[in-house]
Simulated scan of single mutants.
Amino acid sequence: MPKIFGREPALLLALVAAVVNGLPGLGVDLTSGEQAALNTAAATVVAIAIAVIVHDGLGAAILGLIQALGSLVIGFGFHWNTEQQAAVMLIATAAVAVWTRTQVTAPVPAKAPLPPLTAVSGDAYGG
Rank of each mutant, 00 (worst) to 15 (best):
A60R: 08
H55T: 08
I62D: 00
A49N: 04
V20P: 03
G75F: 07
I50T: 05
V19E: 11
V120G: 06
T102P: 00
A97G: 12
L114Q: 09
L15P: 04
D123F: 12
T118I: 07
P113L: 03
I50G: 02
T82W: 03
A124T: 10
A61W: 01
T118G: 09
G22Q: 04
S71R: 15
V46E: 08
V46L: 15
L63V: 09
G126E: 12
P24K: 03
Q85D: 08
V16E: 15
A51L: 04
E8F: 14
N39D: 15
E34Y: 09
L72E: 02
L11W: 15
I50V: 08
V73T: 13
I53L: 13
A10T: 14
S32R: 14
P24H: 01
G6T: 12
Q35G: 04
G64L: 02
I62N: 01
L12G: 00
L30W: 06
V104Q: 03
A10M: 08
L12C: 06
Q103H: 11
V73I: 10
A17W: 00
G127Q: 14
V108A: 05
P113F: 02
V52T: 09
H79N: 11
G27W: 03
T82N: 10
G59K: 10
Q67P: 01
I62H: 01
P115K: 07
F78H: 08
Q84R: 14
P115H: 10
I74S: 03
A94S: 07
G33K: 05
A60T: 11
G70V: 03
A86P: 15
I62S: 02
G70R: 03
T118P: 00
L117M: 13
Q67D: 10
T44Y: 09
L65Y: 06
S32Q: 13
Q103N: 08
D56A: 04
T82D: 12
F5D: 11
P9N: 06
P2H: 07
A47S: 09
G122E: 10
Q67C: 04
A37N: 00
H55Q: 05
I66T: 15
A37C: 02
P107W: 12
I91G: 07
A124H: 09
G57A: 06
V52F: 02
P2G: 13
G70T: 14
L12T: 04
F76P: 00
G59I: 07
V98M: 14
G33F: 03
I53Y: 07
A119D: 12
T102A: 11
W80N: 11
I4F: 14
V108L: 09
A14K: 12
V120C: 05
